[in-house]
Design a protein around this nucleic acid. Structure first.
Length: 176
DNA sequence: CGTCAGATGATC
DNA sequence: ATCATCTGACGC
């Protein structure tokens, strides 16, 4: 199965209080602090396995949540894993992506830079980018809650929560 | 189209 | 108790 990433969210601790790493190093969040190129998979709401890709240097706690994907290959497997719900096209949410990939938390800390079952490689860049606030992080401090750290491909079918997305303007940075 | 409740279980 | 969600039900 091959998926193309169409929507992401960025997390970085410190100082982002929306990031799971804010609670410090725990067995669950340990991969976040590790070297880049690893997966961070965790169980959300007891049901969904969400996939992050660790991007920060060792000790940095920086990662990207994969929120949506365009199915490119292995459509039959995607449809089967998704229970044939509304077809393989509905990979417009992080829980759906995790289900399509057949992930569980045992994949956390997996090296995605080597061919071993879950790999990340180059792909077709997005034609345009939209940005908006991240979803489901009301627990974070106000100064982090509203950061436009959700990114999505413009005019893509495989993107959720479109209403809060805007064209990506100037560079997005962390406030002082 | 919108809002809403319930499912469900690891985690600290 | 909390939670980086999804689905189906219901109302307009």
């Amino acid at each position: 199965m091959v998926l193309r990433v169409t929507e992401t969210e960025a997390y970085k601790w410190p100082p982002d209080t929306a990031c799971h790493a804010k609670a410090g190093r725990t067995p669950r969040t340990e991969p976040l602090f590790g070297p880049p190129g690893r997966a961070y998979v965790y169980l959300c709401y007891g049901i969904h396995n969400l996939l992050n890709l660790v991007t920060g240097d060792d000790g940095q706690a920086q990662a990207v949540l994969i929120r949506a994907c365009e199915p490119v290959g292995g459509l039959d497997v995607v449809a089967q894993r998704r229970g044939g719900r509304r077809g393989p096209a509905s990979l417009d949410g992080p829980g759906k992506v995790g289900q399509a990939l057949g992930l569980d938390t045992t994949w956390s800390n997996h090296d995605v830079t080597a061919p071993s079952g879950l790999e990340v490689g180059p792909g077709t860049p997005p034609q345009g980018l939209l940005a908006g606030p991240r979803i489901g992080i009301d627990y974070a401090l106000p100064e982090h809650r509203d950061l436009p750290w959700r990114f999505a491909e413009a005019d893509s079918r495989w993107v959720g929560h479109r209403k809060s997305l805007r064209p990506l303007g100037a560079a997005v940075t962390m406030p002082a």
